[in-house]
Amino acid sequence: MNCEEAEVLVHALIDGELDAGHAREVEAHIEGCAHCAALMKEYQEIRQAIAESDVRYKAPLELRRKIEKALPQPQAAPSRRSVLRGFAMGSAVSAMAATGLVAIVLRNDDEQRIENEVVSAHLRSLQAGHLIDVVSTDQHTVKPWFNGKLDVSPPVIDLTAQGFTLIGGRLDYVNAREIGAVVYKRRQHVINLFVAQTASTDRKSAKISTLQGFNIRRWSDRGLNYWAVSDLGADELTEFGDKFEGAMRANKEG
């Protein structure tokens, strides 16, 4: 292999796209050619630098809203629709206010529908390969993974010592919005903790309900709504929620 060929194929080598035979040929050339070896090192350094730079863009909220608006709304109740149409026409209403308004409108009459969606999301997550987007038992890995993917990152708390193992995080979709899900396990039981932003900062104490054989523990705190969903018994899910809220309080004070 000569340098001309190597200078093209080295990229496929860096990208892991070469078959074993060609990879060996390129590697053999690089071993004997200081020029190509140094080039490859530079390409790898540039690649690394790009991977570590902030080279991505985040879609403006307004764009997300425009696309949402063009799609048929999921089982929209007439009252909600008219309210949404109302603010969509007022151009002075900022996107943030619009987000808040949805949350307020929903809290009144759509709680049941959202609980249904949360259970559907839980069921979907149990299908093979759907549970976790970022696999980690380390909260310091899971937490930053959410940054930039959501307007508000969910709190990620390691509860392993309390008997609930953090296994990762996922982006999910509830109520026509992207939402963070933090995934825990106790024995073989999966707990999905869904976290969504809400306009209200009131603390709402926990409520346990049962839907399609799953238990849901729902609460609100510091502008976030939480739904913990699992096939765990109500007592153990309550224990999970208590441990989580306790750890949150300890974090805030500590």
């Binding site: 991505r56 863009y57 985040k58 879609a59 403006p60 997300r64 993917k149 979709y173």
Partner: peptide, 10 residues
């Protein structure tokens, strides 16, 4: 499709 909105925008 919506989870790829940032990718598409980028």
């Amino acid at each position: 499709a919506l989870p790829y909105l940032d990718d598409a925008y980028t």
